[in-house]
């Protein structure tokens, strides 16, 4: 655990010591800000809820989160520091978990910056804090899954752009089209696509519901991607 924490701290430090992290956060805030204004969330007399913003946020996250995670392991490959890590008393799982947690913490901080919107709403109305809490839990869970996929993609290549594409393309496909596919599919496939429909699960959280199906989906898929990432990193030892 200590190794994992050490790796996480080192990653976070390197992240926040570079202006890139702040640019990413600023970009995310700009996108969500535009969403908040264009969905009419801050119109006089509008419902005091960020639901409309959160409904569209996953589309932005499908671009942004792979960018956060793309450098985690591929940068180690590119700079050659992976060899040093391989010989250090750190297991592959600790390495992957440390990198993942660092990206996740960064992601949570990024999401937390939108709490300012909620505070602004509290000045001008009385938003449902319970529903907002559920929505934030949903965003953190969806981020957990996205970050895990980003780490897996990063473990597959030393080229960060390729890593970004490996994570972003399936996420975009799933976020943008999973709802449509699940409606178009028939029978057994319909149920399969319903189960993996990210928007559907996230919608439950946006409604203020903590649904165990969504929790299980996001956490299990995140664990699966991390497991695969560990196996990929591990394969460098015997390939």
């Amino acid at each position: 655990m200590r190794n994992t924490t050490a790796i996480m701290n080192r990653e976070l430090l390197s992240l926040f010591c570079s202006p890139v992290a702040y640019i990413v956060i600023a970009g995310f805030l700009l996108v969500t800000g535009v969403l908040a204004v264009f969905t009419g969330s801050f119109k006089p007399g509008a419902p005091a809820t960020l639901r409309m913003v959160f409904e569209f946020t996953p589309y932005a996250l499908a671009f942004i989160v792979p960018a956060i995670a793309m450098r985690t392991i591929s940068e180690e490959y590119r700079s050659g520091t992976i060899e040093a890590l391989m010989t250090a008393p750190v297991s592959d799982a600790q390495l992957v978990l440390g990198k993942f947690l660092a990206s996740l913490v960064f992601y949570v901080i990024m999401i937390a910056t939108t709490l300012v919107y909620l505070m602004l709403m509290m000045v001008y109305g009385a938003p449902d804090l319970g529903a907002s809490l559920a929505a934030y839990i949903g965003l953190i869970l969806v981020g957990t899954m996205f970050v895990a996929l980003g780490v897996l993609a990063s473990s597959l290549t030393k080229n960060q752009i390729v890593a970004w594409m490996i994570a972003a393309v399936p996420l975009l496909v799933f976020v943008w089209f999973s709802g449509w596919i699940s409606r178009a599919a028939e029978g057994w496939w319909r149920e399969v696509f319903r189960i993996v429909n990210i928007s559907l699960h996230l919608d439950q959280f946006n409604r203020g519901l903590i649904d165990t199906e969504g929790v299980v989906f996001f956490l299990c898929t995140a664990a699966f991607f991390l497991f695969l990432a560990v196996k990929v990193v591990e394969s460098r030892r015997w390939r």
Binding site: L129, A131, A134, Q204, D211, V216
Partner: peptide
């Protein structure tokens, strides 16, 4: 299993 046996908690006030 998650889809079949799921439950939910309503956090809305």
């Amino acid at each position: 299993l998650g889809a079949k046996f799921h439950t939910s908690v309503d956090l809305t006030s």
